[in-house]
């Protein structure tokens, strides 16, 4: 049972409001360590400089989309083991299949509630304390 406060999270979304929303929701779940990036490429840079335990990334972003970020993270040994939760605008079967192919840990459809986010994170990390 990992403590939420020990999980370092990287939030990747091109919208500031979405990043704030995810961060605020995670804070309510006890998360304390966050970094943010505004597109996939910036997210990848963050991961390489300093790996995070958990990446929560939007799918549709400029420069490098969420799928591209997932692939790059998985292809880089120091970050390959990070948990990756993909945010999608809708339940798109094809997208989820491709994300699974590239080793996504979980996915979350927008809009989401704090409870849904908790379910998704706990689905990966187990019950949080």
């Amino acid at each position: 049972m990992p403590a939420a406060s020990t999980i370092h999270t990287l939030i990747v979304d091109d919208q500031l409001s979405m990043r704030s929303l995810i961060r605020t929701s995670l804070q309510q779940l006890g998360f304390r360590e966050f970094r943010e990036a505004a597109d996939g490429e910036a997210g990848l840079r963050e991961m390489i400089v300093k790996p995070a335990h958990l990446v929560i990334s939007d799918f549709n972003m400029p420069k490098l989309d969420g799928l591209g970020l997932l692939r790059a993270v998985r292809a880089h040994p120091p970050t390959a083991g990070a948990a990756f939760i993909m945010l999608t605008g809708r339940a798109d079967r094809e997208l989820v299949q491709r994300a699974v192919q590239f080793g996504v840990n979980n996915y979350l459809v927008k809009p989401f509630t704090v409870a849904q986010l908790k379910d998704k994170v706990e689905g990966v990390f187990g019950p949080l304390t």
């Binding site: 370092h8 790996p51 335990h53 120091p78 390959a80 083991g81 990070a82 840990n105 990390f125 187990g126």
Partner: peptide, 13 residues
């Protein structure tokens, strides 16, 4: 969901 295994993170933070 694919469970996260802390031990698999090659160079965890």
């Amino acid at each position: 969901p694919v469970a996260f295994d802390f031990s698999t993170l090659a160079a965890p933070e």
